[in-house]
Write a protein that binds this DNA or RNA. Structure first.
Length: 414
RNA sequence: GCGGGUGUAGCUCAGUUGGUUAGAGCGCCAGAUUGUGGCUCUGGAGGCCGUGGGUUCGAUCCCCAUCACUCGCCCCA
């Protein structure tokens, strides 16, 4: 910490970037609101146990990716690495389990102690939705469609592909996992070092290995579809048929998997090739075992999360800030008039820039730079007869206008 | 956590086969224009050449370390 600098993997959001983020959040809130989701705000830290229980002690996430600390009271706390666990905790601790289904939208900062890359920060921001208490495929359809609608509203849907897969129910998944362990175990010599480790920890993950040798083995691996029982097949068919009926385009990716046991049935990701290795833009799935794993009742859930930074890199149609009216006083009388006029116009709803110093030329220059649409030049001569100079900064035209009815003259620059 | 690349002005980047005062464009400030922006012209400010150590008569340049950024891997709840 020799120099004054932000902590690694964190960054400041200056007004322009902040506006892009806000646009994404507000679009997500508005669109999800039409689906019946209401915003929930949970604390940005929880007892470490909240996240540990949902992840399993041995996982990489717990061992190296959580921001964990002990507070002055000796409590083990963790900055939230994701939103789902917090929302489920809120559902349980807030007694909302009697009021189902529950539909939440959330947004805000998340924290993961990772090596930063493009679109991957240690403090980053997500939007997400969770639909709890509905175990029907209609819920999956609604959640996925809501995600697609939000992506569409911010102009990124066209540059993404929806990949979707099923993990089946517990019975199907365990049967498939056993088959994979048999298959890859028989070819362990040919697996990459990473995948030999996955074989013991998380065999499903071998399916999306990036190693060429692994991929050749994966091509010959057992197919999940052969291990899905009838109930799992029916569920997945209902989801995909629903998406078809709504015109939501998707691509079946049999390699798309989730590692943890409480995931089941639908897994999906909207991916893009425009962001290097961080191609996942919005991802989610069904997690029927999670709430129970955390110590609550058996409540099914489905949801997704999306990284705002990544969305911001792709988003289009972010509104420019409103163009201000610039006030340019000349002389002491002008200064006094500008002070009160700025206040009056702001209360009337105008965005007003009040240059703080300099002569007329300098202030006009600054007005042009901040994008002012018009300037009011307040000179003693004009003020003496109750008037100001109104300058159209785009057209370069200028006219004298009465001060007491200046709102009428400014209306066309609003 | 592992591997590759890069750190020179506010920004984008040149440059020095190791040698006196390190450059450009853009931006910024001032003047031409004492009450009128954009265009133009003139001038100016702004650099521990990321940081620390080493080699050398001499290091922005070579070596080592460190920090940061960046790309990929692991991981991605």
């Amino acid at each position: 910490m020799s120099k004054l600098q932000p902590v690694r993997g964190t960054h400041d959001l200056l007004p322009e970037e902040s506006r892009r983020h806000r646009h994404i959040v507000e679009t997500g809130l508005a669109v999800s609101g039409r689906y019946g989701f209401g915003e929930i705000e949970t604390p940005i830290f929880e007892f470490t146990e909240v996240f540990k229980r949902t992840l399993g002690e041995a996982s990489d996430v717990v061992s190296k990716e959580m921001y964990t600390f002990t507070d002055r009271g000796g409590e083990e706390l963790t900055l939230r690495p994701e939103g789902t666990a917090s929302v489920c905790r809120a559902l349980i601790s807030g007694g909302q389990t009697q009021n189902l289904p529950a539909k939440f939208f959330y947004q805000g900062p998340m924290f993961r102690y990772e090596r930063p890359q493009k679109g991957r920060m240690r403090q980053f921001h997500q939007i997400g939705i969770e639909l709890l208490g509905a175990g029907e495929p209609q819920a999956d359809i609604e959640v996925i469609t809501c995600g697609a609608d939000i992506l569409d509203a911010i102009g990124v849907l066209g540059r993404t592909t929806l990949e979707i897969n099923t993990l089946g129910d517990t019975e199907s998944r365990q049967a498939y996992r056993a088959a994979l362990v048999d298959y890859f175990g028989a070819h362990a010599d040919a697996l990459s070092e990473d995948s030999r480790r996955r074989l013991a920890l998380n065999p499903l993950r071998i399916l999306d290995s990036k190693d060429d040798g692994d991929r050749r083995l994966v091509d010959g691996a057992p197919s999940f579809d052969d291990y899905l029982n009838a109930a799992s097949k029916d569920f997945f068919t209902a989801v995909t048929e629903g998406l078809d009926r709504l015109g939501v385009r998707f691509h079946r990716n049999p390699r798309l998997v989730r590692g943890l046991d409480y995931y089941c049935h639908t897994a999906f990701e909207f991916v893009t090739d425009a962001l290097g290795a961080q191609g996942t833009v919005l991802a989610g799935g069904r997690y029927d075992g999670l709430v129970e794993t955390m110590g609550g009742p058996a409540i099914p859930g489905v949801g997704w999360a999306a990284g705002i930074e990544r969305l911001s890199l792709l988003a289009e149609g972010v509104a420019e800030p409103s163009r201000p009216i610039a006030l340019i006083p000349v002389g002491p009388g002008g200064e006094a008039a500008a002070l009160t006029l700025a206040h009056r116009l702001r209360r009337a709803g105008y965005s007003v820039e009040h240059g703080y110093s300099g002569n007329v030329g300098k202030r006009l220059k600054r007005a042009a730079k901040v994008g002012a649409r018009a300037a009011l030049i307040l000179g003693d001569d004009e003020l003496a007869r109750g008037a100001v100079q109104l300058r159209d900064l785009d057209a370069g035209a200028q006219e004298e206008a009465p001060l007491d009815r200046i709102e009428e003259s400014l209306a066309r620059f609003r």
